[in-house]
Computed example of a mutant assay.
Amino acid sequence: MKSIFDKVKLGDLSLNSRIMRTGLWESQQNDSYSIYDRYDKIASSGVGLISSELFSIYPKDKFIEHSSRMHNPNFMKMAMKISEICHDYDVPILGQVEFIKYNWGIDLDIPVNDLTIEDIRKIQSDIISSAQMLKYAGFDGIQ
């Protein structure tokens, strides 16, 4: 009989269990744990895969107060440490890349139908750049 604690494959990833820890708005927590303590606790819990908290790709995004900011100069150092912690427990980690509104100058409330082809290509490019940053930081994929 299969168990949630069985080792499984997800594409090229080897998971220690069938349990996936999904991303949250963790940066808004006001607890005594540091972000590194949280990921150490999660990775050591028997989880098979972790999806990180929200990583915002635009500096003026609607949920920036509740996200880790990818444009922050310290982001790469933090991301590398998080992936290292997870990999110390042989747990793959996905970066949850997000934006709520396209960062089009100062206007952040653009209706979807008003986006141009160039806007859409810029969004695609920004997501690809974010994925490359996370790959460099040691993440196993993006969500």
Rank of each mutant, 00 (worst) to 15 (best):
N113C: 14
N16Q: 09
L134D: 02
D114L: 14
S27Y: 13
D40A: 13
I128M: 04
E98Q: 02
G105E: 06
A137D: 05
W104F: 07
D90S: 13
S32R: 09
K41G: 14
D31K: 06
K101N: 15
L54I: 14
D61K: 05
Y136P: 00
L108E: 10
I106M: 03
D6Q: 04
S125P: 07
G138F: 13
I50F: 01
Y102P: 00
V112T: 06
D107G: 05
I110Y: 08
D109V: 03
A137R: 05
G11R: 06
N113F: 11
Q143K: 00
M1A: 15
S67Q: 10
E98S: 01
D126W: 02
L15D: 06
T22W: 01
G105S: 11
T22E: 02
S68N: 12
I93L: 10
D12P: 08
S125A: 13
Y89F: 10
E53M: 15
A43C: 15
L13R: 02
S52W: 01
I100H: 04
L94I: 01
I93A: 05
Q124T: 10
S56N: 08
K77M: 15
F75M: 08
M133A: 09
S14E: 13
L10P: 01
S56P: 04
E84I: 13
I57R: 02
S27G: 11
Y102G: 03
E118C: 06
S125I: 02
Y58V: 11
S14G: 10
K122Q: 06
E118A: 10
K62E: 12
K77R: 14
F139C: 00
L49W: 04
G23M: 02
N113P: 08
M76A: 08
I120L: 14
Q28A: 13
N74H: 15
L108W: 09
W104P: 00
V8R: 09
S34I: 05
F75H: 01
F63E: 12
L49G: 03
Y102H: 03
V97C: 01
D12R: 07
F55E: 01
S3P: 07
S17D: 05
Y136C: 07
G11W: 01
D114N: 14
L54W: 11
W104R: 04
S52K: 00
D140T: 13
Q29E: 08
K122T: 07
S32T: 10
K62T: 10
I110L: 13
P73F: 08
F99Y: 07
I35W: 02
D6T: 07
G141E: 09
K9M: 05
M133T: 04
G46A: 09
D119I: 01
S45H: 12
Q29R: 15
I127V: 14
D126L: 02
I42P: 02
L115G: 04
R38H: 10
L94Q: 00
S67P: 09
S129R: 12
D140G: 04
D61R: 05
S130L: 04
P59C: 15
P92S: 00
Q96H: 03
I93Y: 05
E26L: 11
S34D: 08
I123T: 04
E53I: 14
